[in-house]
Write a protein that binds this DNA or RNA. Structure first.
Length: 555
RNA sequence: GCGCCCGUAGCUCAGCUGGAUAGAGCAGCGGACUUCUAAUCCGCAGGUCACAGGUUCGAAUCCUGUCGGGCGUGCCA
C-alpha cells in the first residue's frame, strides 16, 4: 500500500528531470516502511543511490528532492518530509492517508491484501511429487506446506497458478515396490523366501500384501515370479498414491493436476523431446549412449539421456516433462524439491535452456530436512529400516494448523527442528496459538460489542482521525504492510515472510489489547477502534489463509 | 578433489535482495489478572553477524580466500 507514495516519488523524479534538476536514466525509487517511528512512516534512499551520477552529494540532493516531492503530492498525503542520516528522505503520511487505507481494507475485506503484480502470468508450482512407493514423511509435509502456501501467495499477488504433482510411476522404484510386496505376499503363504536387500521394509508393504491375499487369493502363486511382480507393482502403486492423496487432502493440500510419468512415456513425448534435442544439436553419442551437452549451459558434467543398453534415464523423462509444461503455456515453472536434489538444478536449468527457454523460466525452491525433536531430544528416523515418521503421524499428534505453521516458520533453505511437544502445547510458547489467539481475541471483542448493542461500523461512517495513539498508528501500519509483504514473498518465493509478519502483527495487537480498551464509554472512539481491530483481523485472517492455517473465532 | 547451501545473543531463528543504533521467541532475572479471553502484557540482561581481505558514501547482506557443519558429486531413482 506504499503504491501511492511510490507514485508520488516517481512523479517527483520526472518533475525534477523536466526542470533540469536531474539528468540521465533514473532507477525506480525504492521505498521502505521504516522500522522506527522517528524515521517517519516511509523512507527512500533514492538520493543516495543517484547522487554520485548526478555529481552532487546525497544530503544536498535529498534536500532538493524534498521540495519536488512536496510539489508532486497534489493530494496532500504527505504530512512531513525531511532529510536524515546519510541522505535518507523520511516521509510521514497524513492521517487522511491512513484513514483511507483502513477504509479500503474494510470495504474490500481480505482481497485488499492482493494485487495484480503478476499481471496474470501463468505459473505452475510442482511440489511434493513423492514416489508412490510409500507414505509421505515429515519432509514431504514441509514441501507440501511450502508449495501450497507459495501457490496461494502467488495467486494473491496476481499470478495465475496451477498446482501439480508429478507421479514417478515408471522405473526401478516401482519394480522394487512390486518385489517388496511380492516377498511379503509369499511370506503370508508361508513360502520360503528371503526379503530382498533393496526392498521397502515398512509395515504398509505387508498391509498391501495382505490385501492382495484377501482379494486375489493364490492368484500370484500361479504365475511366474516376473509376471507376479509386475502385476503386483502395477496394482500397488495406485493404492499408495490414493493414500498419499488422501493424506494431502487431510492436510489441506489439493492439486489441480496429477501428472503421470507413464502417460508421458506412452504418449511418446520422451522420444519426441530427444529428437528435438538432437535437432537442436545439443546432444552427442558416446560409447553407445546419447548424451546432453549440458556443460555448454553451465552444468559441470554432460548428462546421459539414453543409456548404452537403450533404456531411458530419469533425466530424459524429466526433460520431456518440463518441455510439456512449457508447451502447456506456463511462463514460469516452479519446482519444490528436497534439498538433497540440489545437484540436479544445474542440469535441469541447462535442459530447458537447451529447449530454447530462458533458464529463469525454471525456478527451483529447495526444502531442507526436518528433524523431529521431543523434549529437546532428536527423534530417531531411519528410512532404511522403514522407521521414518510419517506426515500422518505428525498431523495426528499435533494437528494440521500447528504442523503447517511450524513448517513455514523457517526459510525453506535452512534445516528445521520440529518440536513435537511444543507444537501441541497450548501455551504462549507455541507460535501457532499466539497468532491464532490474536485473531480469536478480536472476534471476542466484536462479539462483546454486538452484545452491548454497539453496531459494527460502516467503512465510511467512522471518524478514523480518533485513532491518534502511537500504538494505533502502529497497528494500521501493520495492516497496510501486508500487501507489500505478500508481494515480497511472491517475488522471493519465501512463504516464511508471511509467518514472520503474523507474529509481528499479533505481538502489536496483544500489546495494544493489554494497554487499551477497544470498547470504551465514548461511542465514536469505540467505533473507530472497532474499525481498526476489524482491519487487523482481516489482515491476520488473510495471512493465515495464505499459509493454510485456520483462523479460529474463539479458543 | 570439485560443486551447492548454511554459519547472526546461551538455544532456535528473523533481518524486507546494499542502508540509519543488528531484531524476535525460548531459556535467565524482576514485575502485571476486580477491567473487551493471562493461550496475554511490561521491564532487565544478553552480540568481534565464523575469520581475513576486497568492492563504495555505506556490508550481516555482493566478491575472493580460510575455517567449521550439511548435502550433492551414477549410463540410481
Amino acid at each position: 500500500m506504499k503504491g501511492t507514495l511510490t507514485y508520488i516519488v516517481k512523479r517527483a523524479l520526472d518533475l525534477a528531470v523536466s526542470e533540469g534538476k536531474l539528468h540521465g536514466d533514473l532507477p525506480a525509487p525504492i521505498i521502505e516502511m521504516t522500522r522506527e517511528r522517528k524515521f517517519g512512516d516511509y523512507a527512500t534512499n533514492i538520493a543516495m543511490v543517484i547522487a554520485s551520477k548526478q555529481g552532487t552529494n546525497p544530503r544536498e540532493l535529498a534536500g532538493e528532492l524534498i521540495q519536488t516531492i512536496r510539489d508532486a503530492d497534489t493530494e496532500g498525503d504527505v504530512s512531513d518530509i525531511s532529510v536524515a542520516g546519510p541522505g535518507f528522505i523520511n516521509i510521514t503520511m497524513s492521517p487522511g492517508f491512513w484513514s483511507r487505507i483502513l477504509k479500503t481494507v474494510l470495504e474490500k475485506g481480505e482481497d485488499y491484501a492482493c494485487s495484480d503484480m503478476g499481471a496474470g502470468k501463468q505459473v505452475q508450482v510442482e511440489f511434493v511429487s513423492a514416489n508412490p512407493t510409500g507414505p509421505l514423511h515429515v519432509g514431504h509435509g514441509r514441501g507440501a506446506a511450502l508449495g501450497d502456501a507459495l501457490a496461494n501467495i502467488l495467486q494473491c499477488a496476481g499470478y495465475q497458478v496451477q498446482r501439480e504433482y508429478y507421479i514417478n510411476d515408471a522405473g526401478n522404484q516401482i519394480q522394487t515396490l512390486g518385489i517388496s510386496v511380492y516377498a511379503r505376499y509369499l511370506e503370508l503363504f508361508g513360502r520360503e523366501n528371503v526379503f530382498p536387500e533393496e526392498g521397502y521394509k515398512g509395515d504398509y508393504i505387508r498391509e498391501i500384501a495382505e490385501r492382495f491375499v484377501k482379494e486375489d487369493g493364490e492368484l500370484y502363486l500361479n504365475m511366474s515370479e516376473d509376471k507376479a511382480v509386475e502385476e503386483i507393482a502395477v496394482k500397488s502403486a495406485p493404492l499408495i498414491l490414493d493414500d498419499i492423496r488422501q493424506d494431502l487432502e487431510e492436510f489441506g493440500v489439493f492439486f489441480d493436476l496429477w501428472f503421470s510419468e507413464t502417460d508421458l512415456l506412452e504418449r511418446g513425448d520422451v522420444q519426441k523431446t530427444l529428437k528435438e534435442m538432437e535437432k537442436r544439436g545439443t546432444t552427442f553419442r558416446h560409447e553407445g549412449a546419447l548424451w546432453f551437452r549440458s556443460t555448454d549451459k553451465g552444468d559441470d558434467k554432460d548428462r546421459v539421456l539414453v543409456k548404452s543398453d537403450g533404456s531411458l534415464t530419469y533425466f530424459a523423462s524429466d526433460v520431456a516433462y518440463h518441455r510439456d509444461k512449457y508447451e502447456r503455456g506456463f511462463d514460469t515453472v516452479i519446482n519444490v524439491w528436497g534439498a538433497d536434489h540440489h545437484g540436479y538444478v544445474a542440469r535441469m536449468k541447462a535442459s530447458i535452456q537447451g529447449l530454447g527457454r530462458d533458464p529463469d523460466d525454471l525456478q527451483i525452491v529447495l526444502v531442507q530436512l526436518v528433524s523431529l525433536v521431543r523434549k529437546g531430544q532428536p527423534v530417531a528416523m531411519s528410512t532404511r529400516a522403514g522407521e521414518f515418521v510419517t506426515l500422518r503421524e505428525v498431523r495426528n499428534e499435533v494437528g494440521r494448523d500447528a504442523a503447517r505453521f511450524i513448517f513455514l516458520t523457517r526459510k525453506s533453505d535452512s534445516k528445521l527442528d520440529f518440536d513435537l511437544d511444543l507444537a501441541k502445547e497450548k501455551s504462549n510458547d507455541n507460535p501457532v496459538y499466539y497468532v491464532q489467539y490474536a485473531h480469536a481475541r478480536i472476534c471476542s471483542i466484536l462479539r462483546n460489542a454486538e452484545e452491548q448493542g454497539v453496531s459494527l461500523p460502516e467503512p465510511g461512517g467512522v471518524d478514523l482521525n480518533l485513532l491518534d495513539l502511537p500504538e494505533e498508528k502502529e497497528l494500521i501500519r501493520h495492516i497496510a504492510a501486508l500487501p507489500d509483504v505478500i508481494e515480497g514473498a511472491a517475488i522471493s518465493m519465501e512463504p516464511h515472510r508471511i509467518t514472520t509478519y503474523l507474529r509481528d502483527i499479533a505481538t502489536t495487537l496483544h500489546s495494544y489489547y493489554y494497554h487499551h480498551r477497544v470498547l470504551t464509554d465514548e461511542v465514536r472512539v469505540t467505533e473507530a477502534r472497532l474499525a481498526m481491530v476489524l482491519g487487523v483481523r482481516t489482515a491476520i485472517a488473510k495471512a493465515l489463509a495464505l499459509l493454510g492455517v485456520s483462523a479460529p473465532e474463539r479458543m
